[in-house]
Every structure is written in structure tokens, then in C-alpha cells.
Design a protein around this nucleic acid. Structure first.
Lengths: 249, 249
DNA sequence: ATAGTCGTTGCGTTACATGCAACGTGAGGG
DNA sequence: CCCTCACGTTGCATGTAACGCAACGACTAT
């Protein structure tokens, strides 16, 4: 561990709470002000901090630059990986990651159930929009007119007794999902399986993907599935943080 | 200037271009890999970088955190938010907000085009001074001697056939912008894109930021772009009011 | 098996970050 | 008007902590 670097990074973290003077900053890391100044100078040369007036330092523009470049680099799949795997090993159930691209909901990652009874699915497969929890989560984030547009073009093939079969019912469901912060698929796709899904959010709070947990009804009844909601939501939140989302208090 | 800190910050900058291995990184700053590792460890403990797999390092989540907090501090952004979003949804074109700080023009906010054809840009990025509409708007407000000073230090890299390439031409352009109350970039930065920009003013009438609208030429010819001027100026005025500017009659 | 390529660790050396004290500057008050 | 105080800034001597080195361990490929 590098001492001077450690001190400098502490300074940067301190500046996140607002502009500070040299004396304040040197106090925080408990060094002589001349030492703090040299660190700040170096940070300044890299545009990590900048002077505000004569007496104050604040965070610099390099941070915006770096943060946004890093966001472009990241793909959701890699970022969510750890959180999803942990949820998978913890519960033993099938975990999916899906995203909305080009008008379709696609599974972009999957962690298979450790139980002998598995469901069939595949990375890259398209999920039907009207009867899957992930699709509900992803579509619920679209702006209102777009949502209505999509809802009207869906072919509401009834796959089970519970399948939603009208645009109005579907839009009402999306509203529920939006406010609740999670979606369910109560055997709407396949008779013997039910799911819960939650949004993974990016830096600007937009939904970039959806995590879902799929469980055969023979292993767990609906109530038992809902009991896993907190765990799923925590997973989605952890994945969101990795995607640059900042939890607001 | 602190050597180790300088090296560490260089590493962070390097990681912005994508994940790198320890060897690659130590090569960049020309030190032994053990040295690079110690720096990375410290950066990691502050969440400035994180490991990806066993062999790669990438930028960490602290950057998102810091960048977002720093952005919150700049209140032009918040104040202009509504006006800009409305312009964006009304026209469907890319809208930028930029400000002049520490000798640089940087993009501090962005609303993406809703058209399938988008332009590439990024919050935090620096805008070239001689060939962007936002820079012209921001620099046109500087006092005369300062303007000349800046104009003489610009590196007039010709990027298209229309790029301004001399200080005199640039200063003349700034005068036009100043009296007209708006600036254009008629394919001076990129061949296939043109922009218009207008000033956002603060309480004392000073220019605190610039709003711009960027449109690919294939979607709209120059005349068509200029037809949006009243809309842009109204947006800039609305944002100015939010920043404390009082319209004079 | 063997060689090659990674990251990691312990250690001795000295470059470099540090604290100190003196200096410069600007603001406020007697 | 000068004095003082509170800042940031600079030069320098000192000792620490950052450094390169070399050996090691874990893996992969052939």
C-alpha cells in the first residue's frame, strides 16, 4: 500500500462532500499543509481536482470523463455476474439476466438450478413479452407512449390459464410493476413454473437489465417464492451498483 | 509533485481505455510490476479500480459515486434540466449542456437523440474550442483581452473543410456570436454533423453555460437546422431564468 | 514432463515524500 | 497607515516509505 496515494485518494473522497480549503484538507489526512498542497497539485495536474477561487479545492472534470468512459466499457453481464452467481448458489434456483434490445427481450446470462429439476432456457433466447417477469420489468421502464405502442403490437397468445391476454390488462400490470419495483410471473408462461424479477439500474437510474429467479411449483409454492423477494431485490441492487447506479437515501 | 501519485493517476487514466493486465499497466508508467501492483492495491482499497477476473484491472465504482456527487454540486445542470429535456423530447435531437471551467469547455449534461441515428459524445468530455458551437458561445462572453489570449493558444487542427484555422477568423466569429446571441457549427467538427448553440445566463447576465442541439446532416439540412433557432433560444432563455437571470424588456 | 507466463512476496537501498521554518500576500482592525 | 493575523507558497535537510530486484508459486500450453 502506498501512503501518499492513500492520502491523496482520501482527499478526493473528502472533496466529494464539497469544496474545502488547504488547511481543512491537510487536517483530514493529518499532514503538514505543504504536504497536502503537493498532493493536491498532482491531483490538479491530472484534472482530478481543481481550484475554486484562491482558497478552495473541488473535484475536477477528469472524474466525469473517467466515470462515463468506464460506463461505456462495462457490460451489464460482467457487472452483474458476481451478484447473480451468489444468488444462484445461495438459493439453488435458476437465475436469469435479460435485457431489452431492438424491441425484444433477450436472456443475456443464466445460472442453472442446482436442483435435479431444471427448467429449459438458453442465453440469447427471446422471452415472450406478455408472460415473463423479466419482460414486465424491462417494459415498465419505457416512457408511457412507447409502452402503449408496444402493448398494442403484442400477440397475446394464451399459454396457461393465468396468461394476460389484453393490452389494457398488460398496461395495468406494467404500472403495478413500476410502482412495486418487481414483477411476477405466476405460471403465466408455463403451468408448472413461476418467477419473480427485479430491475438492474444504470448510473442515471434507467433500467439496463432484469434479474429473475425461476422456480418449479413442485419445489416451492407462490407464497414461498415471494419470500425470496428481499433476496432478489438485494441482488438486483448489488448488480445495479456495479453498473454505476448510486443508491439514493 | 508526488511521483507515486502521479503514476497512480496515470494508471487510472489508462484504465479508462479498457481493462488492462498488471504487465501492461506497469509498462505504461515504466516501473517494475511489483510497484504497479502496490499502487493498484491502494487504488483498489479506495474502489478507484477493481479486479476483473484474475488478470485484469478496470475502473472501480468510486468514480461513479464521485462523479455523480460532483455533478450534483454544479447547479446549472439541475436548473437547466427541465428546459433541456423538453427541447429534447420536442425535437428528438441530441441536446448538450456545456460549461467553461479552468480553460476548458466540458459537456456537463446530455440528452440523447430519440432518432436511431445518434452522435457520439459523453458527459465529462472536453469540447475542442475552435470548432464547436458551445465553445464559441462560452468564449464569446470572455472579456476582450482574455479572448484574444485564448484564441492565440488554441491549436487550430483542421478537422473538416469548414474548420476555422486562424486566431483572427476565430475572434471575428466570436464577435458574430456575441452580437447574434447564438453560435453555429456548420460541419466544422465532423463532416456529417452540424450544431447550433445558445447561452444560458446567470443572475448578472454572465454566460454560465451553453445549450446546443446537434443534428446529423442526413436528417436535416443547414436551413432546416436554423429553423429550430427560435426553439433553442427559448430553451436557453427558460434555463437562464432558472439560473436567476431576469429577462430585460 | 518442461518451459514459459502470469501475479505475488520479502528485502535492502536510496530516491522521494515529508515536516519545518521562513517568506509572500491580502484582509481587517486599531 | 501600519500592524497583525491567516492564509498559501517555497527551499531545504532528514528519514521514511516507495522502489527494483530476485526468488517463489500458481497455471497453461506443448
Amino acid at each position: 500500500m502506498s501512503q501518499s496515494l492513500d492520502r491523496a485518494l482520501t482527499l478526493v473522497g473528502e472533496l466529494a462532500t464539497g469544496p474545502k480549503t488547504l488547511d481543512e484538507l491537510s487536517g483530514v489526512i493529518d499532514v503538514h499543509k505543504s504536504t497536502a498542497m503537493r498532493l493536491l497539485r498532482t491531483l490538479e495536474s491530472h484534472r482530478f481536482v481543481q481550484r475554486e477561487g484562491v482558497h478552495h479545492y473541488r473535484l475536477g472534470t477528469a472524474l466525469f470523463d473517467l466515470a462515463n468512459r468506464a460506463l461505456e466499457e462495462r457490460d451489464v453481464r460482467r457487472s452483474a455476474e458476481n451478484a447473480l452467481r451468489e444468488l444462484n448458489t445461495r438459493t439453488g434456483y435458476t437465475v436469469h439476466l435479460a435485457s431489452y434490445e431492438g424491441g425484444e427481450v433477450i436472456y443475456i446470462d443464466k445460472y442453472d438450478s442446482t436442483h435435479p429439476m431444471r427448467m429449459y432456457s438458453r442465453i440469447g433466447r427471446r422471452a415472450p413479452l406478455h408472460c415473463t417477469a423479466v419482460a414486465k420489468v424491462l417494459l415498465s421502464d419505457l416512457p408511457e407512449p412507447r409502452r402503449r405502442e408496444v402493448a398494442n403490437t403484442i400477440d397475446y397468445v394464451p399459454l396457461t390459464a393465468n396468461t394476460i391476454t389484453s393490452p389494457d390488462a398488460y398496461l395495468a400490470e406494467l404500472d403495478r410493476v413500476r410502482t412495486a419495483g418487481y414483477a411476477v410471473d405466476n405460471a403465466e408462461h408455463e403451468d408448472f413454473i413461476h418467477c419473480i424479477a427485479a430491475p438492474v439500474r444504470g448510473a442515471r437510474g434507467e433500467v439496463v437489465a432484469a434479474v429473475s429467479m425461476s422456480v418449479p411449483k413442485v419445489l416451492l409454492d407462490f407464497e414461498g417464492l415471494l419470500a425470496h423477494l428481499p433476496d432478489l431485490l438485494a441482488t438486483a441492487r448489488a448488480a445495479s451498483v456495479e453498473c454505476g447506479w448510486s443508491p439514493r437515501d
